[in-house]
Write a protein that binds this DNA or RNA. Structure first.
Lengths: 216, 216
DNA sequence: ACATGTGAACTGCTTCACAGCG
DNA sequence: CGCTGTGAAGCAGTTCACATGT
């Protein structure tokens, strides 16, 4: 039944979404929820919810549904959200600064230890309580603080070069906001958020109305 | 062969990526490119590139590859990037402001006509050359300016309510940065960017090292 | 009676492999 | 001879449907 076998990225994404819905339900005092209700809120189907959860165990009660608080803590455990994650943000521009103060990050246990930039005018300034550090000190700082994750918020032209410095500094996970695909060794995990690309997807959908396969 | 038949969202995403790679190649004076080279740069396979393009026509020359400039203009046409797209940004917080000045948007023909907020202290201020408008005027403004796309950069708690106002204002495409799935009528196109969710995906990948199906 | 958990069927994206053409 | 374009095969993710448990 449950397993540590390869789980689809889409499944993990939905688990995060379920967690959010469940936390919201918990705040409103709801104690029990069915796969049907969870699916409606999360924009998927009940069968999908049950299948997603079944990869990790059986958390429900037949005839009754899921106990909200219990499922919340199971999902937190599965997603690795019980602990603190140390994060560096690279790039103190508009996007980097916005991310530094993004509430959704802090809330989930992601602590921003430092923001890096190579612009001497920015180094030393304080962005949302975090001092901007000189990018040149990245490797040294990383040796000392061993962050698990880097958020890349730099221009596309330098993203690949910066990513290589990050990998060289011994960091194994990158959340990439630059609009280019990163080329990294296989043991490095990269997830990319490409905002321009999503906008272009909308443009395509508008132009080709009712010829795209839908998605949330 | 080519068709206006339903194209997978993943395909459209890759087309945007190919376009970016091709533009970069063009800047460097490269006139011809093979599906193999395009794939390497774009983080996919040559067969995938050829298949993606084949849905829309045959743009290459056997034995030679693709003419870069020609393929660029074909992709621009396919993606609907030949024209101007009128965009409203809703939410003048950190993320909304960062998006307003995001170069990647302007570059592709996305013009930000207005930024909306309901905080009276922000209304009237200027963010990157665009005046912050009162959210209450959205419907009136939309009737006059008929924007095609709205970028939602508001807190999750109000995202659904705001989305409904947007739909009521007659706008049919939403790029959602709020961390909740939006519930909208079927004829409205929504694409979501959920940054917290991507970070959580990284956390999961780290915890379960070598048990996730990889992706770029 | 009701809702979960899951093998089996299905759908659709990706990869293969090669014929076709320059 | 090289590289595209594309049916066919393979594979992964989703949906179905029902046996199982409360």
């Amino acid at each position: 039944m449950h397993a540590d076998k390869p789980i689809a990225e889409s499944t993990v994404r939905r688990l995060s979404l379920y967690l959010r819905v469940l936390e919201h339900a918990m705040e409103r005092g709801i104690r029990t929820i069915s796969s049907e209700e969870l699916a409606d809120e999360g924009g998927t189907t009940s069968a999908q919810v049950r299948k997603d959860l079944s990869f990790f165990g059986s958390f429900g009660t037949r005839g009754r549904g899921y106990h909200v608080a219990e499922l919340v803590s199971e999902l937190q455990r599965i997603l690795g959200l019980g602990r603190e994650w140390r994060v560096y943000i690279i790039g103190a521009g508009k996007i980097g600064a916005a991310l530094a103060s993004y509430h959704g990050f802090v809330q989930r246990g992601f602590t921003v230890l430092g923001i890096y930039d190579n612009d001497p005018r920015l180094v030393g300034t304080i962005v949302d309580g975090v001092t901007v550090r000189d990018f040149a000190t990245l490797a040294d700082d990383a040796r000392r603080e061993s962050p698990e994750i880097v958020v890349l918020a730099v221009p596309g032209e330098v993203a690949q070069a910066v990513a290589e410095r990050v990998v060289a500094a011994g960091i194994h996970a990158i959340l990439n906001f630059a609009p280019v695909p990163l080329h990294v060794p296989a043991h490095i995990t990269v997830r990319s958020v490409n905002m321009a690309l999503e906008l272009e997807g909308l443009a395509y959908a508008i132009v080709h109305r009712d010829s795209v396969t839908p998605a949330a």
